[in-house]
Design a protein around this nucleic acid. Sequence first.
DNA 1: AAGTAGATGTTCT
DNA 2: GAACATCTACTTA
Length: 195
Amino acid sequence: MPSSHSTYRQLTQSDFAIDAPLMARALIGATLLVDGVGGIIVETEAYDVDDPAAHCYGGLTARNRAMFDAPGHAYVYRSYGLHWCLNLVCREEGHGAGVLIRALQPTQGLDAMRARRSVENERLLCSGPGRVGQALGITLAHYGLPLDRPPFSVWAPTDPASLNIISGTRIGISKAQETPWRFGLADSPYLSRKF
DNA sequence: AAGTAGATGTTCT
DNA sequence: GAACATCTACTTA
């Protein structure tokens, strides 16, 4: 359970059956846990099969196979040969869509995250997709796993109103740079970068 | 505060 | 070979 003074509902696979940009926005403020370690999602990016910046662009391959899974599964990829990054697959089976988790506000398992990251500063634990992957212990072992069963769980606030969510262009891509599919919690100190 | 180099492995041309 | 949904350490101001 994420928090004591807010009400949360655990997302099931059917909750992920929406377009990537909608999903990316809806996940802001939700809590993501892997083996009980994680925090509040404060930054995401949407990717889709029709989107030249996406790994699933152009259709199914060995690497992107999980992006074509049923909604509510994990797509994991290796970034720049060094970092494991986590996507939450959405939309519909066979389509190719997902949401990259770019930053968390750490709330649970801080000690585990500090140990994995070798970093003390709480602000630097999960502020970037590679950092999220390392802090949560993401590896290829998580590839294709369902998000509503251990080790994963995702919890959405029952009252998501009043969240100040902003959008902008995505980071680190060379194609479709104009598409404003990056979403974040305004003014969160845990963003990977300012909007 | 802002810029650059170097690390590393998988995928694509 | 080149590019890549990145991070860190180190430089220059």
